[in-house]
């Protein structure tokens, strides 16, 4: 069996096939009877990284959840269309969704500890995903899980495999979750505030890991954050959301150099005034 990294390096997907297409999607809150997301559109091709920036309540997380088919109760897609690898998700049956999640589209979220079972060793949890998704044997699944733990730069995969969640730091847990998320070779990975709760140095490590995975395996990434700089570091294209509206959208360099909306200008000014940027400019 070839290793995961070899497989992917040998055949990097070079197609321009759209793997996730979000077309003018609107999301509606049925309880409060109002529209929360007022139309968002973007496309992901293999190896492309799109970022959504916005504050809590801007609708960025709901958009992610809509793409994963896990909108909270009382929320519904009220307009537009989402296609995953060319299939309209509105027409998927629950069984088809189950096949799609993990294998085609996958996600990591802010609080990694809450997505893992505290009383099962983390390695077994990754292996379980592999066994369910690829019908591998126990031995194969374990082997593959160890490969994945190495792929996400955990220093001692064999040790981590046999540990429980409480024995791992936040950064290590997030890496375990990323390993789980890419276990079934998805084409799209959604990272929703995946680094928000982490220390800055650990955040950089996770972001570097994502960039690394995207380059090596051609994963398409959707990165969601409240921090423009996090998105700017990683993404080809940026969407800025505010109160459910996309107020700015375009290639990252274009948005950073020529922001059109006042809100984007404020986000940039914050970094230039208060961040490291003003000192680094002096170099």
């Amino acid at each position: 069996m070839t290793t995961l990294s070899e497989q992917r390096v040998v055949a990097p997907p070079v197609t321009d096939e759209v793997v996730l297409a979000v077309h003018d999607v609107r999301i509606y809150d049925q309880v409060n009877d109002r529209e929360i997301v007022h139309g968002i559109s973007f496309q992901l091709t293999p190896g492309k990284v799109v970022g959504i920036v916005g504050e809590s309540g801007s609708g960025k997380t709901l958009t992610c959840r809509a793409a994963l088919g896990i909108l909270p109760e009382h929320f519904a897609v009220s307009g537009g269309q989402i296609d995953i690898t060319g299939r309209n998700i509105a027409q998927l049956t629950p069984a088809e969704w189950t096949d799609l999640r993990g294998a085609t589209i996958s996600a990591v979220f802010q609080d990694p500890a809450s997505y893992l079972n505290p009383s099962i060793r983390v390695g077994s949890q990754i292996a379980e995903v592999i066994r369910v998704k690829t019908r591998a044997s126990r031995r194969q699944a374990r082997h593959r899980a160890l490969e994945l733990l190495a792929l996400v730069h955990l220093r001692d995969p064999a040790l981590v495999y046999d540990q429980y969640t409480f024995e791992l730091s936040g950064g290590m847990l997030q890496r375990v979750l990323i390993a789980t998320a890419i276990a079934a070779d998805p084409t799209v990975l959604i990272a929703d505030e995946a680094t928000t709760a982490l220390d800055v140095t650990v955040q950089a490590e996770i972001l570097d890991l994502l960039a690394d995975l995207q380059e090596r395996t051609g994963l398409a990434l959707l990165v969601v954050s409240h921090d423009l700089a996090v998105v700017a570091q990683l993404c080809d294209e940026v969407l800025v959301m505010r109160e459910g509206h996309v107020v700015e959208q375009g290639p990252t360099t274009e948005v950073l150099q020529h922001p059109r909306h006042e809100y984007t200008r404020m986000l940039i000014a914050e970094h230039e005034q208060y961040g490291l940027d003003r000192y680094l400019d002096e170099h």
Binding site: T201, Q203, A204, D208, A211, D212, A232, Q233, L256, H271
Partner: peptide, 21 residues
Amino acid sequence: RLLIGSAPTLRSAAANRSERA
């Protein structure tokens, strides 16, 4: 040095990745 290299900035970070490693 790692802390400064890790702080999110609006500059492209591709060049810093190997430095951070």
